[in-house]
Design a protein around this nucleic acid. Structure first.
Lengths: 196, 196
DNA sequence: TCGTGGGTGTACCGATCGGTCTACCCACCT
DNA sequence: AGGTGGGTAGACCGATCGGTACACCCACGA
């Protein structure tokens, strides 16, 4: 009922964001001009600048959306295993490998964006934020498992996760998923209290 | 004697390459125009295009030089420990951490460049090549140690190495070196034959 | 009824992009 | 003496960059 009321806020904006997301991720941020985006989103220049003050603004929105996906996915997994942190950790690890790393076939959007900007540009700030957030979530799960070293292990897990994403985008081979998940499990199991 | 004879081949070219290396790595490739490079290298436009057919050509030369560093470093370490592959592995791992990851403070030049290009662009090809080469070298050392799984472990080592480089560039903390090297050593020691 | 906000269309801005052109200089080697 | 190759100087190219100005349309809600 009355969906149209507050829903109207912009179909064009949504189209712009989806297009920007696709192009920025697939081809890089500096490589994609405003012209490309408005053409493929079937929007006019004025409309874009009505919704986003500048390209940097659009970039920030693009990364915010990417971050929202990650937040939702990780928290969704954790919530789906309220009494089994170990299963949640396993799921966080393996979620990455779906469809042969298809969702990250071009690597990590935050790492990629960070490569294109310097200093304290929003892209770099957001990259650091999401990485620390994920690391913190993993650390929390490890704590609930009475893991020997939640902080260090969480960071190590982030390292192999990062490496797997990059490898999946650059030099994927048939063993990648297996090698990655074995390492992931080893880091977790190696510090568990009464594990065999 | 007669150094000037064949040494002349281009001081300008060298200046261009050094400048390109610095700017491309520090700020990104698409973010740096030809104008910036020739200005900071104190060279004219014509001179640059006399030595490099195009910007893509210069990018390729930039990455070739980066690859040459890596080749020299890794092979240098291996050659310095002809009878001790384990020491060589340890050195390859820790070489990265010198000066608080200072040499890679902006991350991996190949990963960064790959983020800016699509398809089979030289940047992506070279990235895959250097990564597979390093992985192969590590695998060779593990084989000489009669490691249980040289191939898989080499790939896992590359993952944590990659993750450490990225982390060093984005969210370095005081424990990074320690966490990284512990993981590095664990992967190696975990598969050794008669280890304690 | 009228304003407001999302939207279109298009022309325009200065700046920069990668790349080319012509003309000249000079140190070296043959 | 002449050629060659590395170098400088600066103008110029079409294209694209991010961003703005102005004028108009229309559906909605107050």
């Amino acid at each position: 009922m009355s969906a149209t009321a507050t829903e109207r806020p912009s179909q064009a904006k949504e189209r712009i964001l989806q297009t920007a997301e696709r192009l920025f991720y697939d081809e890089g941020i500096h490589a994609v001009g405003i012209q490309r985006i408005i053409a493929e989103a079937s929007v006019t220049r004025v409309t874009l600048y009505r919704h986003f003050a500048s390209k940097d603004d659009l970039v920030a929105a693009y990364l915010d959306r990417k971050a929202a996906y990650d937040h939702a996915q990780v928290d969704g997994i954790i919530d789906a295993h309220p009494d089994d942190p170990r299963a949640a950790l396993a799921e966080i690890g393996s979620a990455l490998t779906r469809d042969d790393f298809g969702a990250v076939r071009r690597g990590c959007p935050f790492i990629n964006a960070s490569a294109e900007f310097v200093g304290t540009h929003p892209a770099r700030v957001k990259a650091r934020e999401i990485r620390q957030w994920v690391t913190g979530r993993i650390e929390g799960l490890l704590q609930r498992l009475d893991h020997r070293d939640p902080r260090g292990t969480a960071e190590q897990l982030m390292m192999v996760r990062t490496g797997a994403v990059v490898s999946g985008a650059l030099d994927a081979n048939d063993h990648l998923t297996e090698d990655y998940l074995r390492c992931w499990a080893m880091l977790i199991d190696g510090g568990l209290p009464q594990s065999a």
